[in-house]
Amino acid sequence: MNVTATVAFMLALLIMASSTTSTVSAQAAVTCPGALLQLLPCLPFLTKQVTTPPAQCCSNVKLMNDEANTAAIRQQLCKCFKPAAISYHVDPAVAKALPGLCRVSVPVPIDPKIDCNTIS
Rank of each mutant, 00 (worst) to 15 (best):
P44F: 02
F45M: 00
F45K: 02
F45L: 03
L46V: 01
L46R: 02
T47N: 02
T47V: 03
K48S: 11
K48A: 12
K48R: 14
K48Y: 12
K48Q: 12
Q49V: 00
Q49S: 06
Q49F: 02
V50F: 01
T51L: 14
T51S: 13
T52D: 09
P53F: 06
P54K: 07
P54F: 09
A55W: 08
A55D: 14
A55G: 09
Q56T: 12
Q56L: 14
C57Q: 02
C57T: 01
C58M: 05
S59C: 08
S59F: 06
N60P: 10
N60G: 06
N60S: 07
N60M: 06
K62T: 08
L63H: 09
M64A: 11
M64C: 10
N65Y: 05
N65F: 04
D66M: 07
D66R: 10
E67P: 10
A68S: 04
N69Y: 09
T70Q: 03
T70N: 02
T70C: 04
A72W: 00
A72R: 08
A72I: 04
I73A: 04
I73R: 01
I73L: 00
I73W: 06
R74M: 09
R74N: 07
R74Q: 06
R74C: 04
R74I: 10
Q75I: 10
Q75D: 08
Q75Y: 08
Q75G: 00
Q76T: 12
L77S: 03
L77Q: 06
C78S: 12
K79S: 13
K79A: 11
K79F: 03
K79T: 10
C80Y: 02
C80S: 10
C80L: 04
F81Q: 12
F81E: 12
F81T: 13
F81S: 13
K82V: 12
K82W: 12
K82F: 12
P83T: 12
P83A: 10
A85W: 05
I86N: 15
I86P: 11
I86A: 15
S87I: 13
Y88E: 11
Y88P: 03
Y88G: 04
H89V: 14
H89P: 09
V90W: 03
V90S: 01
V90R: 03
D91S: 08
D91Y: 09
D91H: 08
P92S: 11
P92H: 11
V94H: 00
A95C: 09
A95P: 09
A95T: 00
A95M: 07
K96W: 10
K96Q: 15
A97D: 10
L98V: 05
L98H: 04
P99K: 07
P99V: 03
P99Q: 08
P99N: 09
C102M: 08
C102S: 07
R103G: 13
R103Q: 15
V104T: 05
V104C: 07
S105T: 15
S105G: 13
S105F: 13
S105L: 13
